[in-house]
Amino acid sequence: MNNPNPGKLDLHIAEHIAWITIDNPGKRNAMNASMWRQVPDLLGKIAGDPAVRVVVLTGTGDAFCAGADISELHEIERREESITAAAEQALLTCPLPTIALATTIAGRSQLTVRASKELVDLAARGESLAERARHWQDRSAASGEGAEGIGAFLQRRPPDFPYRG
């Protein structure tokens, strides 16, 4: 079936940050075959740009990414070499800090919002992330944020994150 509104990946570079936006809102930003194929090339282009210090992946609308577009699984899975594996390998080997900004989660967890903002700002200035990332990981564990998020998901209820700033 021909999709009149195929999904796409949009790249925007501003203030040392490369924003990759998954844009397929009609399918909750599910990744079609074309989108999967674009990931290694986009990340290669970004990694070769000395002005870029961090990569942020985000989605259009209310969803970050629903995964693979099941209507194109025949195309995604038919190749000798998996196009999803190539995209995932490109993400794993990207030499820049890479952050997935899942607004449906981060928009509700104030600790995650605060931590993400600080880490993106540090990366954009070319500063080390390791110490602050450990700090936020420790705060998250101590606050119960992760346990609440998982519990809410499993119980299919809105989360009541304990972190208040």
Rank of each mutant, 00 (worst) to 15 (best):
102 A>D: 13
13 I>T: 11
83 I>P: 08
94 C>D: 03
103 T>E: 12
124 A>H: 00
7 G>A: 03
46 I>Y: 04
45 K>N: 01
111 L>G: 04
134 R>S: 10
150 I>N: 07
136 W>C: 03
98 T>Y: 00
60 T>Q: 13
125 R>T: 01
136 W>D: 01
107 G>A: 10
95 P>R: 08
67 G>N: 10
17 I>G: 06
87 A>L: 02
41 D>C: 04
18 A>Q: 07
31 M>H: 07
13 I>V: 15
140 S>Q: 10
20 I>A: 04
109 S>V: 06
36 W>A: 12
30 A>Y: 04
140 S>D: 01
26 G>Y: 01
90 A>H: 13
62 D>S: 14
52 V>I: 13
102 A>N: 12
159 P>K: 11
33 A>S: 11
5 N>A: 08
165 G>V: 06
40 P>A: 05
56 V>D: 13
81 E>V: 14
25 P>Q: 12
96 L>A: 06
43 L>W: 04
55 V>S: 06
13 I>Q: 04
66 A>V: 03
158 P>Y: 09
82 S>E: 09
99 I>W: 12
52 V>Y: 05
114 R>N: 13
133 A>P: 03
92 L>A: 14
124 A>E: 01
5 N>F: 15
151 G>Y: 05
37 R>C: 10
145 E>D: 10
67 G>F: 11
30 A>M: 07
118 E>F: 04
49 D>R: 11
22 I>H: 02
25 P>R: 11
54 V>L: 02
124 A>M: 05
63 A>S: 14
42 L>F: 15
7 G>L: 08
81 E>A: 12
31 M>E: 02
133 A>S: 06
159 P>L: 10
19 W>G: 02
30 A>G: 13
61 G>Q: 10
54 V>A: 11
101 L>Y: 15
40 P>F: 12
162 P>M: 03
17 I>W: 05
80 E>Q: 14
149 G>D: 01
103 T>M: 15
122 L>A: 05
97 P>A: 05
77 E>T: 13
63 A>P: 01
69 D>S: 08
27 K>P: 05
143 S>H: 06
37 R>A: 13
17 I>Q: 15
118 E>Q: 14
76 I>D: 00
135 H>W: 10
22 I>T: 07
148 E>Q: 09
31 M>N: 04
101 L>Q: 11
61 G>H: 04
5 N>W: 08
77 E>N: 14
1 M>P: 08
8 K>C: 11
52 V>K: 03
109 S>W: 06
164 R>W: 00
42 L>T: 09
109 S>C: 15
162 P>D: 05
6 P>V: 03
97 P>M: 07
57 L>P: 02
50 P>M: 01
139 R>D: 07
163 Y>S: 13
103 T>N: 13
162 P>Y: 04
109 S>M: 05
84 T>K: 10
63 A>L: 00
83 I>N: 07
30 A>I: 09
64 F>L: 00
79 R>H: 08
47 A>Y: 06
78 R>H: 15
155 Q>E: 15
148 E>V: 08
53 R>P: 02
73 L>V: 08
138 D>S: 12
91 L>S: 06
26 G>V: 01
78 R>L: 04
9 L>N: 06
140 S>I: 06
81 E>K: 15
60 T>W: 04
77 E>I: 09
156 R>K: 13
140 S>P: 00
151 G>L: 07
13 I>P: 05
58 T>W: 01
125 R>E: 12
160 D>M: 07
13 I>R: 03
124 A>R: 10
110 Q>I: 15
51 A>P: 00
48 G>I: 02
78 R>D: 14
